[in-house]
């Protein structure tokens, strides 16, 4: 593949307990480093990026675009990845792309003729889920990402779906219910985890379509409203 003149993408995936960084020239992956050793993102992410660029002999200003796994996922993980990307792009003037985490996850099992349903477990024990379909060699959204109670997974899964993502951590009864469906297939275990290479690929598609995020105001896709209790019957006091 021709890489001269290709867009250099630095991709970051920290939405789950996997910490992964990659550099791609267009659709060609140049390097990827992935750690699955728990929530170490706060310590490892910056050093991983630094090392990867050094391995490639690339200066930070040779990166054209930052593609960040933008959620849904672990709030803390998403913040670490996005905050790092924002600081990097602020300094270097790169464009920022927020890649839907579930779409990158759906890409990993490869081009299949089935609807692909990636799921990630939220900390509250719910599922983040969506459905994607391949059109040619590009992945399209069929059902938008959402928060789903675990017991509704069976209803949500379209006929003939390929299920990927946090399958192993589903409650046993939900898992056996899904596995008993003859039309549903599970992605191979080694392809069910998030990876920055997949984030780079989706980032490439979004970049080609000009779908950039605003660096100043970009936020992770939390998908969950956060509600706190307000004070009642008091006036505001601002000095």
């Amino acid at each position: 593949m021709e890489t001269t003149g290709a867009v250099n993408i630095l991709a970051i995936e920290t939405a789950t307990q996997i910490c992964s960084v990659a550099v791609a020239a267009g659709e060609l992956l140049l390097a990827e480093e992935t750690l699955n050793i728990g929530r170490i993102h706060a310590e490892k992410l910056a050093a991983l990026v630094d090392q990867l660029l050094a391995e490639l002999g690339k200066r930070p200003d040779e990166i054209d675009v930052l593609a960040v796994s933008g959620g849904p996922g672990s709030f803390t993980g998403l913040r670490i990845g996005l905050a790092f990307a924002k600081g990097f792009a602020l300094a270097g003037g790169q464009r920022l792309i927020l890649v839907p985490t579930l779409m990158a996850l759906a890409l990993r099992p490869g081009i299949v003729r089935r609807p692909v349903c990636p799921v990630l477990r939220s900390r509250r024990g719910e599922l983040y889920a969506a459905v994607y379909e391949w059109r040619g060699s590009e992945l399209m959204t069929a059902v938008a990402e959402r928060v789903l109670p675990e017991e509704e997974l069976g209803l949500f899964l379209p006929r003939g779906a390929l299920l990927t993502g946090d399958v192993d951590s589903l409650p046993p009864e939900i898992r056996s219910q899904v596995e008993s469906r003859e039309d549903v297939e599970l992605a191979a275990p080694w392809l069910r985890t998030p990876s920055a290479a997949a984030v780079a690929q989706v980032g490439f598609w979004l970049c080609r379509r000009g779908e950039f995020a605003d660096l100043d105001t970009a936020e992770p896709r939390y998908l969950q409203e956060f509600v706190a209790r307000k004070l009642e019957g008091v006036e505001k006091h601002v000095q």
Binding site: A46, F84, A85, K86, G87, L90, A91, G92
Partner: peptide, 9 residues
């Protein structure tokens, strides 16, 4: 992490 992004870049 914003600080680290700046420092690396």
């Amino acid at each position: 992490n914003v600080a680290k992004g700046l420092a690396v870049a």
